[in-house]
Amino acid sequence: MSVAPTHVAVLMGGWANEREVSLMSGNGVADALEMKGYRVTPIDMCRDVAARIAETKPDVVFNALHGVPGEDGSVQGMLDLMGIPYTHSGLATSVIAIDKQLTKQALVPHGIPMPGGRIVASDELYERDPLPRPYVLKPVNEGSSVGVAIITEDSNVGNPIARDAEGPWQEFAELLAEPFIKGRELTTAVIDGVDGPRALGVTELIIETGFYDYEHKYTEGRTQHVCPAQIPPNVAALCEEYAIKAHNILGCHGTSRTDYRWDEEQGEDGLFVLETNTQPGMTPLSLVPEQAKHVGIDYAELVHMIVQEALRVHSPAKTDVQSQEAAHG
Rank of each mutant, 00 (worst) to 15 (best):
M1R: 14
V3N: 14
T6K: 09
H7L: 02
A9S: 14
A9L: 12
L11R: 10
G13P: 07
N17R: 13
E20P: 06
E20T: 13
V21P: 06
V21L: 06
S22A: 13
L23G: 00
G26E: 07
G26M: 02
G26Q: 09
G28Y: 00
K36H: 06
K36Y: 03
G37E: 10
Y38N: 05
I43Y: 01
A50Q: 15
A51G: 14
R52M: 10
I53K: 01
A54R: 15
F62G: 08
F62Q: 08
F62D: 07
N63E: 04
N63R: 01
L65R: 10
V68E: 06
G70I: 09
M78V: 11
D80A: 14
A92C: 14
S94K: 05
S94T: 03
V95G: 04
V95K: 15
I96W: 05
A97W: 00
I98Q: 14
K100G: 02
Q101V: 15
T103Q: 03
K104P: 06
K104Y: 05
P113F: 07
G117Y: 00
S122I: 11
D123H: 11
D123R: 14
E124S: 14
R133P: 00
Y135A: 13
E142L: 10
S144I: 10
S145H: 08
T152K: 13
N156T: 15
G158M: 04
N159M: 08
A165L: 13
W169M: 05
A173H: 12
E174G: 05
L176T: 10
E178P: 02
F180S: 13
D192N: 12
E208S: 12
D213S: 08
E215V: 15
T219L: 10
E220P: 05
E220F: 05
T223C: 15
V226S: 02
C227E: 14
P232T: 11
V235H: 05
C239K: 13
C239F: 00
E240L: 00
Y242E: 09
Y242G: 09
G251Q: 02
W262P: 07
W262I: 13
G267H: 08
L274D: 04
T276H: 07
Q279G: 09
G281M: 08
T283G: 04
S286L: 12
G296M: 08
G296H: 06
L302C: 02
H304N: 11
V307N: 02
V307R: 06
Q322Y: 01
S323E: 08
Q324D: 13
A326V: 11
